[in-house]
Design a protein around this nucleic acid. Structure first.
Lengths: 347, 347
DNA sequence: CTGAAAGCGCTAACAC
DNA sequence: GTGTTAGCGCTTTCAG
């Protein structure tokens, strides 16, 4: 069922061009040790025959697969976007993208990923958060001899096999925006405690508030699970506090939608009585009424960078990583869900 | 950078088990012509050595790749879900999933897909709509000798290389729901004219209305583009008609969100003054206020079915397709955005 | 039921 | 610059 009319091979090309396989191989692999004229002739024959080198044979001989893997946990719009970015680079470079979903929390997560790597024989891996934060994953991958680039929010030293999202600048902007609107009583809905990105968002928010000598009281922090329902539950708690927060920052958009939902149910007007901010910049943030102020991530830049780094790592080795940026900064986008602090009750 | 400690090969296994490669090969490929005892011994050695057959070598010799491809246009949550479903089946069957995004409207769409197939050497393809509806794609794929299963909304005869979504039942349910609520004046926001799925939704709605001797006047139909903005634009038009529609059906959720947005802006209350229905069952439909009545698609069932069909087609040939279902029906889910028709103005 | 030998289509030393 | 010669790790005739 695979190849209808048999595809031409490197031998056909060699014969037709009157050169040896080796020369054709050199042309395919863009070696510079080929005479201009010879190269031209070979290329012409390749084109004429519509020859596509067999990736399996190539890989078998060269101990590569020309495949890269994308590993993620839950598929989200963010992941879709990353996938698209990676795919764009792949297309330009002759790599194919193999995808793999896995459960970060599973005890066998590492085994599972290593198995994927050996089964699929990918040349390298791009690992999305939170899978990328699994303890012990890096050594396991190193042991398996697999190149990888991780998305993370922790800046580290050493070989730069990572693309780091620095949350602080955007969260600072967001905080200033709210403080300038007069807000002093903030509520925060965090992501799951185990999630490093979530913790980083939390930390960044605390640091940003500290710039204004503001604190985030313990009872104004509720742990969520990055889901809508957890956002609903958390905001119910926050809105029952006294004093009530005048602004709530949710660690992702989905939970922010939960806040908006509860507010609607309680008749609390956004932004007149409550400001809400999300995180992620899902398209839906612009669809809701009022539109959600949020922090958007630059998925295209992130994924492009990660892929280029990975390919450089595969083809040129660790040193090549130094040529690249490591940091990516999201951006705060104020929309309709944030506004001036309401006048004090009873005043 | 690929294989750290050299991986064991079939030769190692053969030597260690004291049999020939051929026998190991038979065991790997689950041939029944192997003695129980021999098989057991081989399996034990395989386990002991942690041997994973090299997919490239296997593929090269057997003229297969053990790769299947997923082709789509725009990445959406629907596509993510499909991808997950496909991946689940792949994992159980030793196939890997290679993804490919392409532009349906491009003149080179077919060439692009055929190139992908020959480059990646996938054993088969799962093609999402609207890519799956491209004219001439099927013959091109047949010519390239590539197995495929398409998602489509058109039931056809011949070999069943498709998984068909039949919109009518769910749209009928939705229509009944609205008619029973007293609605008679309907607005419809279609998908792009060129999109067959979109046309099918339109047709189904017209047929469903006909059951109640209702018609969809021309000025109550506005073409959208499956985007939020197009939903906004379309609903502005519809809501300026006289008489105004009391219920609007949008051919996807995103456009329905556009309707809700315009309604909010105009102070039109949903569902008291206007009922809104979407199509797709995105999670966000439950996040908005009021929650959106919509028609959900059974992505898991669809993608599972498509993948099983594809694998059967690859491994057993066309006849095997007959063992499978072809039809999948979405389901109408009433939520808060639909309600009784408002009392006539001025009455 | 099992084995020996011949490739699958390509790359990689090593000559020339 | 280019050709020759071995394989990469597996499946597949064809014998036995």
């Amino acid at each position: 069922m695979n190849t209808g009319t048999k595809q031409p091979t490197i031998n056909d090309v060699a014969a037709m061009a009157g050169v040896s396989k080796r020369t054709v191989s050199r042309v395919i692999n863009a070696s510079d040790k080929v005479n201009q004229a010879t190269r031209a002739r070979v290329l012409e024959v390749i084109d004429q025959l519509d020859f596509t080198p067999n990736r399996q044979a190539r890989g078998l001989a060269a101990r590569r697969s020309y495949l890269i893997g994308l590993v993620y946990d839950i598929p989200t719009l963010f992941i879709s976007d990353v996938q698209r970015g990676v795919l764009n680079v792949c297309e330009d470079t002759g790599y194919e993208l193999v995808v793999h979903a896995c459960h970060t929390d599973s005890k066998e997560a590492i085994t599972n990923i290593v198995k994927f790597v050996t089964r699929a024989r990918v040349d390298g891996l791009i690992i999305c958060s939170p899978v990328s934060e699994i303890d012990g994953l890096e050594p396991a991958l190193k042991k398996a001899g697999c190149a990888y680039i991780r998305f993370t929010s922790t800046l580290g030293s050493g070989p730069r096999k990572r693309v780091v999202t620095d949350y602080l600048p955007a969260i600072s902007d967001m905080t200033r925006h709210l403080v300038e609107f007069g807000h002093r009583d903030f509520g925060f809905i965090s992501g799951p405690r185990g999630n490093i990105s979530a913790r980083k968002r939390h930390e960044s928010f605390v640091r940003a508030l500290a710039e204004y000598d503001l604190e985030l009281p313990k009872n104004m922090i509720v742990e969520g699970a990055f889901t809508f329902d957890s956002g609903v539950a958390a905001s119910r708690k926050l809105l029952s506090r006294n004093p009530q927060p005048t602004a709530i920052f949710a660690a992702n958009d989905e939970m922010a939608f939960g806040v908006m939902n509860v507010a609607a149910e309680k008749g609390i007007k956004i932004p007149e009585e409550l400001s809400v901010v999300g995180f992620d910049g899902t398209p839906f943030a612009t669809f809701v009424v009022p539109s959600l102020s949020t922090i958007i991530r630059k998925t295209d830049e992130m994924s492009r960078l990660a892929t280029l780094k990975l390919l450089a790592l595969i083809n040129e080795g660790t040193d090549a990583l130094l040529k690249f940026e490591t940091l990516v900064s999201p951006q705060f986008i104020p929309r309709q869900s944030t506004g001036p602090v309401p006048a004090k009750k009873g005043s």
